[in-house]
């Protein structure tokens, strides 16, 4: 049965889960932004090259 009352350990458990969730969100956002940024840059530069040739 689901019981989210962790008594005296509540602070430690929720802090561990909260920090883990935060790190996962940061890693996901940073990875997606990094990839999207460079994809955009590469496509823009390729379009410039094509326009010149």
């Amino acid at each position: 049965m689901l019981d989210l009352d962790f008594g005296k350990y509540e602070g430690f458990i929720w802090a561990a889960y909260g920090i883990s969730a935060l790190v996962f969100v940061l890693l996901t956002v940073a990875s997606l932004r990094f990839s999207a940024h460079w994809k955009r840059q590469a496509e823009q530069l390729k379009a410039q090259e094509d326009a010149r040739s």
Partner: peptide, 19 residues
């Protein structure tokens, strides 16, 4: 996802050098 980003970055660098 990160490797894909790195491949795009290197393609952008190569295109910039050619330009």
């Amino acid at each position: 996802v990160r490797i894909r980003g790195e491949v795009w970055r290197r393609r952008a660098d190569a295109a910039l050098s050619r330009l």
